[in-house]
């Protein structure tokens, strides 16, 4: 059974249509990169699926059910730039936020929640930075904190918006190790990705998106020159031919 089924999803942003009849489904245990040019609607696709941005039409089902019923099984890592890193809080506290939904109304996080958050930071190699104010962390460390916050949710399906953007090589490796571990455990991960060079090494599935799905499937079948050209249009053809 598909973990995620998207049917004819259409959405607009300030009257411009950014997603048009997007349909695909995702199998459990896959690691999919969502690839496409700027403005192709990659981030919007994640937000619309998670009902953080309104859709015009179409439907999305999670584990054969609705998002509302499956919320605890779905995790989301927003773009690092979407939050204020000067917020008065530390790394452990940010990770703890991933558990707020589970703590419940009118309750405060308990020691077990703190321990879980700490384990998660440790997994990302960030245990030494638990008490560090978040603005004092490097970009790569901030991204690891975001990943730790997603891990602590123990979801079955993850959406990650550019987790590898602007991070150092060590962080990139740490994140990819974690993503592969998640896949081994049968979890499903969809990642908005910008670096075409690493798609084949990192991801077993790829979704080429430019307002609609250009191609979707196993990376080695779908990630062909023709499909990539079609997704990016003329500009990329020029760039790629210039470099090869």
């Amino acid at each position: 059974m598909a973990v995620l089924t998207v049917n004819d999803l259409t959405a607009s942003y300030r009257k411009n249509k950014v997603l048009n009849d997007v349909s695909f489904n995702v199998q459990p245990g896959s690691l999919t990169s969502i690839v496409g040019p700027n403005g192709a609607g990659k981030s919007t696709l994640l937000k619309v699926m998670l009902e953080l941005h309104p859709k015009l039409s179409g439907d999305v089902s999670f584990f054969g059910s609705t998002l509302n019923k499956m919320k605890t099984r779905v995790g989301y890592v927003p773009q690092r730039g979407s939050v204020d890193w000067d917020f008065p809080t530390d790394a452990l506290d940010v990770v703890l936020m991933g558990l707020y939904g589970r703590v419940g109304w009118l309750k405060w996080p308990k020691r077990e929640h703190r321990e879980k958050a700490m384990d998660s930071l440790e997994k990302m190699g960030m245990a030494d930075y638990a008490g560090r104010q978040i603005s004092q962390l490097s970009g790569g460390q901030q991204q690891r904190v975001f990943l730790a916050r997603a891990l602590v949710q123990e979801a079955d399906l993850y959406f990650m918006d550019e987790p590898l953007a602007g991070v150092d090589a060590a962080t990139e490796q740490a994140i990819m190790t974690i993503l592969n571990e998640l896949r081994m455990k049968g979890k499903t991960v969809m990642v908005v990705h910008h670096d075409l060079q690493t798609v084949e090494d990192y991801f077993d599935h790829v979704l080429l998106l430019n307002r609609t799905v250009v191609a979707h499937g196993v990376t080695k079948d779908v990630f062909t020159k023709d499909n990539v050209y079609q997704t990016y249009g003329g500009t990329l053809r020029y760039m790629m031919e210039a470099t090869t």
Partner: peptide, 22 residues
């Protein structure tokens, strides 16, 4: 005191807050 964590998370990261059902 009652909504400390809700206001904290919706102030810091409203997208995450919405995605976990707050």
């Amino acid at each position: 005191l009652a909504f400390y964590k809700e206001w904290k998370i919706t102030s810091f990261d409203p997208m995450l807050a919405a995605s976990i059902g707050i």
